[in-house]
Design a protein around this nucleic acid. Structure first.
Length: 556
RNA sequence: UGACCGAUGGUGUAAUGGUAACACUACGGUUUUUGGUGCCGUCUUUCUAGGUUCGAAUCCUAGUCGGUCAACCA
């Protein structure tokens, strides 16, 4: 019985389904992911990546990775490399790797064609003059004095622009459409500008570069992209996208727009992210507080959790603000099933088990993951002196406190039940040490004591523990919707977005921790080794906390 | 004061003229050697006003609210 429930399609999948049914494009579907290599990919890009590659996967098509590199002054190879790595890490493989700059010759030829058709002209106006004549959304623009040059003159001028005869900004090539069109993008948009700049791929071959609008649709067309998917703000560009394709009489790619991802408690714009990096508010693009793919990776997120998140948030056209809690849910859901459990004590309190023989060490076999029976077990040494969390002991315990306090009993995870007999305070009234006795018959796995305890706590053996540094990460901003505070977002950085704890005590097995392996520190959250870690100085990042209903209860 | 896009629980997303549902959140219960996980349950929804129709979240009209558009950026 393969009774799979028909999952409803998003509106783009519906369009594709209909196109396929109608036999459009010979039953083929080709998409593309077109980042500009001027920054790092973030979770919003992941949504687009999952959409584009997912569509091709689902309908038997192909997806190209195309670097939209038409602006030589902002684009760099460093970004190309990081983007490639991020897309692969997310689990996608592209059919072709292309660059808009691959098409500079074609684009130049397209421009000549439009000039010859009397649909493009060279304008000597300055940027300011062009802006002034453009009008405003509510006010029609007016024609440039250069609008009616002859085809011959335009051809000559454009070729001389190409040949490098003019300085930057002296002239532009514009499409001749309609200066009074209610759509600003149709008011004789710029096609080419002069930039005597070195390009990361074409070097110094060109001194004129095409604008986005004159490059994107034609690049789609050259690659026979059937469904060109972009975000909502390009909706107003679509008439122009179609205009170029129509006038050039080339393969009719079509553009479809969806609402970009907005995530709560963070910023997503490249400009703002760059600001955080440049002003040292975070420690680079992969600072685990950033919403970039590289940061999420470093923080311990998995590709499948991110893909799952992108699936859950859906695809539609209305503006949205996704609660980062959903992303946290997705990573917990994944890691719960896959991450091995280990023990680490973040805020240690010494426990002496007074009736346990001095010098004795027992090797406890502790299961790695109760959710995965295949995961086996590991050995954790137990001895007379151990450390537990300070917060797991209270001198005066409230009624439902299932942990340690005078006379109270708990199970030490994977070991014995202990009972608190006494505790030691220093001159400040601070509890420095507690004394317990253990129940020898209660050893985990062979418990004949018949004692039932409510609480189980984690611990590490004092003589065997490793020291580590732990970095606790939390949401970047204290405001939900960063768009509500605009450029003031830096005033809302969460002061607790990063808390470093040194001298954390972790169980000895973590000495062998690998980069890229996720762990659950029992009762504390999911962690992974950070790249700053060395064999002598372990560093772990907290990916996300565990759900903590007790903490919630205490807040009431 | 123009053009375009949008509006379904707290947050997202479905329902494609025929019983408004799914996930997350919140809250309760249960299980548990993680106050984790699992399982069960509860709360909460069609922007407004007209119209078409036997029947409207869905179609039409108007309004309201939100977003986008005036870079030689993409």
């Amino acid at each position: 019985m393969t009774e799979e429930k028909e999952k409803s399609l998003n509106f783009i999948e519906e369009i594709v389904t209909e196109d396929l049914k109608a036999g459009k494009n010979g039953g083929k579907i080709v998409t593309r992911f077109p980042p500009e290599p001027n920054g790092y990919l973030h979770i919003g890009h992941a949504k687009s990546i999952c959409l584009n590659f997912g569509l091709a996967d689902k309908f038997g098509g192909e997806t190209n990775l195309r670097f939209d590199d038409t602006n030589p002054v902002t684009e760099e190879t460093e970004y190309v490399d990081s983007i490639r790595a991020d897309v692969r890490w997310l689990g996608f493989e592209w059919e072709n790797e292309f660059y808009t700059s691959d098409y500079f010759d074609n684009l130049y030829e397209f421009a000549i064609q439009l000039i010859k058709k009397g649909l493009a002209y060279v304008d000597d106006s300055s940027a300011e003059e062009i802006a002034n004549l453009k009008g405003s959304p509510t006010q029609p623009g007016s024609d440039s004095p250069f609008r009616n040059r002859s085809i011959e003159e335009n051809l000559d001028l454009f070729q001389r622009m190409h040949a490098g005869e003019f300085p930057d900004g002296a002239k532009v090539l514009r499409a001749k459409i309609d200066m009074a069109n209610p759509n600003m993008h149709l008011r004789d948009p710029l096609m080419y500008r002069i930039k005597h700049a070195h390009h990361h791929r074409t070097g110094d071959k060109w001194c004129i570069y095409p604008m986005y609008d004159f490059a994107h649709g034609q690049s789609d067309s050259i690659e026979s992209i059937t469904h060109s998917i972009c975000t909502l703000e390009f909706d107003v560009h679509r008439p122009l996208y179609d205009w170029y394709i129509e006038k050039l009489e080339i393969f009719p790619s079509h553009q479809y727009e969806f609402a970009r991802l907005n995530l709560s408690h963070t910023v997503m714009s490249k400009r703002k992210l760059l600001q955080l990096v440049q002003e040292g508010i975070v420690n680079g693009w992969d600072d685990p507080r950033m919403p970039t793919i590289s940061a999420l990776r470093r923080r311990g997120f998995t590709p499948s959790a991110i893909r799952n998140f992108c699936e859950r948030i859906g695809v539609a056209k209305r503006d949205n603000l996704i609660d980062v809690g959903l992303l946290e849910f997705c990573i917990r859901e994944d890691l719960n099933k896959t991450a091995d459990r280990v023990m680490a004590v973040l805020d240690p309190l010494k426990v002496v088990i007074t009736n346990y023989p001095e010098g004795q060490v027992e090797e406890m076999h502790v299961e790695n993951n109760p959710e995965d029976k295949e995961s086996g077990s590991r050995i954790v040494p137990f001895s007379r002196e151990i450390f537990i969390e300070k917060e797991d002991f209270m001198e005066v315990a409230p009624k439902k406190f299932f942990r340690l306090g005078p006379g109270l009993m708990v199970r030490l995870k994977g070991a014995y039940i202990i009972k608190c007999d006494d505790f030691v305070k220093d001159e400040n009234g601070e509890i420095t040490e507690i004394h317990c006795s253990y129940i020898p018959e209660s050893r985990s796995g062979s418990d004949t004591s018949g004692i039932n305890v409510k609480g189980t706590i984690h611990w590490v053996s004092a003589a065997h523990a490793e020291k580590a540094e732990i970095r606790l990460y939390d949401r970047l901003l204290i405001v939900e919707d960063s768009s509500s505070v605009g450029n003031d977002f830096k005033k809302f950085i969460n002061p607790e977005s990063l808390i470093v704890i040194r001298d954390v005590l972790v169980e000895p097995s973590l000495k062998e921790a690998d980069l890229g392996t996720n762990y659950q520190f029992i009762r504390k959250g999911y962690f992974c080794l950070d790249k700053d870690s060395t064999p002598d100085a372990l560093v772990f990042n907290r990916t996300v906390t565990l759900k903590d209903t007790w903490a919630k209860e205490m807040k009431k």
